[in-house]
Amino acid sequence: MGEIVRVENLSFRYPEAAKFAVRDFELTIKGGEIVMLAGPSGCGKSTLLRTVNGLIPHMYTGEYLGSVSVGDHKVSEARMSELAQTVGLLFQNPENQIFMFSVERDIAFGLENLAVPPDEIRARVDEAMRQLGITDLAQRAPHELSDGQKQRVALAGVIVMRPRLIILDEPTSLLDPKTAVELVELVRRLRDETGITFLIVEHRLELLVRIADRLVVMSEGKKVLDGRPEEILADERAEAYGISIPPVSRLRNQLKRDGLPLENGFGPDELAEELNRQALKR
């Protein structure tokens, strides 16, 4: 698949701010990729996400240099309604992006705003609910849903717009471990079934590195590392940039430093298997 996101030499500073939140940023994302964006709090991740979906510069003004293109649109020149059909954004707290009093009405919200004919809205809402396994929640009110269900409803409201790129801003931060794992599996399934590209900001790296194709690390508004997740987690500089390396990756890195010839991987099972192999060889 071709390129879907191109960020060229992007810098952005909020009004009255002393420093640029994002500086000289370059990024390209290919269609169908799952790209993780990591970095310490305040490093500019959320600002970058908002430049990709158009909230910057359309909603937030400031000093905007460089350019961002998504699909066929140059973000600074396209209208928000055009961008809404290309880029979907799932916020950290799904509660704040559910507007309507029933699940199916909320999922339909974006399509209603684009004046899509009611019959088509019905078909697309039903399809989105089926894809996310929430058909039985159609008539429920938002306050009757669990956090995990709200997350799915909010995601259905994004997917129903049939975007080419979905941005997830710390999607697991309010979820318990089991629901978080389910969400990660859902993202993988959606990518495999629909070919949608994902750009995900997440602190809990151990959850998402398994499905990510790339891990991009930001520090002080700049891109400092970009590569396959296993390579980045094995890179000694990652921790210095404020990335919390998952314990298993940390152990793997230590064992490698101690001279064990291990390959790059993520999970405890993989590591145990490799260690067993090494022990048998010896």
Binding site: L55, M80, S81, Q97, A108, L111, N113, A115, R122
Partner: peptide
Amino acid sequence: ESRAYGAVPRPTSL
């Protein structure tokens, strides 16, 4: 904004 609110003067309804 991200869900196209205000894109058209007469939105439709599910």
